Amino acid sequence: MPPRVLLPPTDADARRIKRSRVISYALVVLAAIVFSMRPELFGDPQSQPVHALLHGWRIVAGVVLAVAALGVQVVVGVRWRSGLRRAAADE
């Protein structure tokens, strides 16, 4: 079995990869901002019974943003590899 050799990305693929990295970094930064929000931003927990719910949604939103950042990278990688396979099949 021949060793796997990955070709460098084409110009269009390189642009797509760069854009996906920027989007992923932005999503990770947003997740970090959401995670770093202090519960006091939502008001006094003694006077607002919804405080616990808002605090929980902060955690859920941060996790969703982090998973979305990972998903962007996975989708772009899969598309690039499938493009390489199609190009190899055409040859």
Rank of each mutant, 00 (worst) to 15 (best):
M37A: 07
A68P: 00
V67T: 11
G43K: 03
R21H: 14
V72D: 14
I33A: 15
D13I: 03
I23M: 08
L84D: 11
M1I: 07
V34T: 13
S47W: 05
Q46W: 13
V74R: 03
K18H: 09
V28I: 12
R15V: 09
E91K: 07
Q46G: 07
A61G: 02
P45W: 09
F35K: 00
I59R: 08
V78F: 07
V5T: 14
A31T: 02
A52S: 09
V63A: 12
P9D: 14
A69K: 01
I23E: 09
F42M: 15
F42K: 03
G71E: 11
Q73K: 06
T10Y: 03
V34P: 00
V22F: 08
P45L: 12
R58P: 01
A32L: 13
D44A: 13
Q73S: 13
W57M: 15
A61L: 10
L70R: 00
A69E: 01
Y25M: 04
V75F: 06
L65W: 05
V50L: 12
P8Q: 07
A61W: 00
A89M: 06
A61T: 12
V67I: 14
R38S: 13
G83M: 06
L84M: 07
G62D: 02
W57V: 03
P39K: 02
V50T: 12
V34W: 04
V63S: 03
R19F: 01
A12G: 03
R58C: 02
V75K: 09
V75M: 07
L6G: 03
R15C: 06
R81V: 08
V67C: 13
V75L: 13
V75E: 11
L41R: 09
Q48R: 11
V22A: 15
D90N: 03
D44N: 15
R38F: 03
G71R: 01
A12E: 15
S82Q: 15
R81N: 02
R19A: 13
A32Y: 04
V76E: 12
L7M: 06
Q48A: 14
L65N: 04
A14L: 13
I23S: 09
G77V: 02
V78N: 00
Q46A: 15
G62S: 01
L53F: 10
D44T: 05
R86K: 10
F35T: 11
A32W: 02
R58W: 00
R85G: 04
A12Q: 10
I17R: 01
V29F: 11
D90E: 14
D44M: 08
F42Q: 03
V72R: 02
P2I: 06
V76K: 00
S47V: 13
A12D: 11
V29Q: 01
I23Q: 10
W57A: 04
D44W: 15
E91N: 02
D90S: 14
P8Y: 02
W57Y: 11
I33L: 10
L30A: 15
A52D: 12
A66F: 11
S47E: 13
A87F: 08
L41C: 06
V72N: 05
A26I: 05
P49K: 06
E40R: 10
L27V: 07
A14N: 08
E91F: 00
A26G: 13
R86N: 11
Q73N: 15
L30C: 09
D11C: 07
A68K: 02
D13G: 04
V63I: 15
V74Q: 05
